[in-house]
């Protein structure tokens, strides 16, 4: 969900940029050099996943998968999603420059919140329970993102209020689809490689490889 340049008020743009900078700084702290390849390749995976089109009714939507990104990357989701949005703006013409901070917060803050809320559940003993928590996280992330976008629009002016509300409700089907897909992805990852969800939560001294 990319807001474009010129739509938001200066106060919202500056607020978004400050929040994004803080989030990125915190995210980089949890990213030692050893984890850099893992963070980079996983970020690239989410970049590719966001290009996947999923049929929904007569049309199709592209995935966002920020919930899953949060579950896998933790706080590192902030810098990862920021770079993804930067590349999308520069090379694909999605989004914009002055809104980069707001867009980063809209996508990455829900990812980190989902990580904080659902990481316990993801680590549960049974993959099915983990999948349910994954589904909750996947749906919740889209709900929060739609809420953040709506908030950014509503803070800019009353004339956007109707659009803000519609944006939120139009994303309910997307929430359901993202929840189902995230649940399936978590289920498979838990069965095949449970340590996927621990890559960015264990202490750096434990390392990735020996």
């Amino acid at each position: 969900m990319h807001i474009v340049d010129g739509a938001l008020s200066n106060e919202v743009l500056i607020g978004g940029a400050v929040l994004a900078a803080g989030g990125i700084a915190l995210g980089l702290k949890s990213l030692p050099a050893e984890k850099m390849p893992a963070a980079g390749v996983l970020s690239a995976t989410f970049f590719v996943a966001s290009l996947v089109h999923v049929p929904i009714g007569p049309s199709s939507v592209h995935l966002i998968m920020n919930g899953l990104a949060g579950l896998v990357l933790g706080w590192a989701a902030f810098p990862a999603l920021f770079i993804a949005l930067l590349l999308q703006a520069v090379f694909f013409g999605f989004g914009g420059i002055t809104v980069l901070g707001v867009n980063t917060v809209n996508i990455a803050l829900p990812a980190v919140l989902v990580y904080c809320i659902c990481r316990r559940g993801i680590g549960s003993g049974s993959p099915t329970v983990a999948a349910i928590w994954g589904g909750i996280g996947g749906g919740l992330a889209i709900a929060l993102t739609a809420g953040c976008v709506a908030l950014a629009l509503a803070l800019t002016g009353d004339e956007f209020l109707a659009a803000a509300k519609l944006t939120f409700f139009a994303h309910i089907p997307v929430m359901i689809i993202e929840a189902l897909i995230t649940a399936a992805a978590v289920y498979l990852a838990r069965k095949v490689k449970p340590e996927l969800f621990e890559s960015f939560t264990q202490s750096p001294s434990q390392g990735v490889s020996s």
């Binding site: 893992a38 897909i181 399936a184 498979l188 490689k193 990735v208």
Partner: peptide, 30 residues
């Protein structure tokens, strides 16, 4: 792909598999 649970589940497995492979690839890169 269609509007059914099978589609969403298969795409979810696809993304899950890509993440697993990504982590394994990153270990080789490191």
């Amino acid at each position: 792909p269609g509007n059914n649970r099978h589609t969403y589940q298969s795409l979810g497995y696809l993304i899950g598999m890509m993440l697993v492979r990504a982590v394994e690839r990153s270990e080789r890169i490191l």
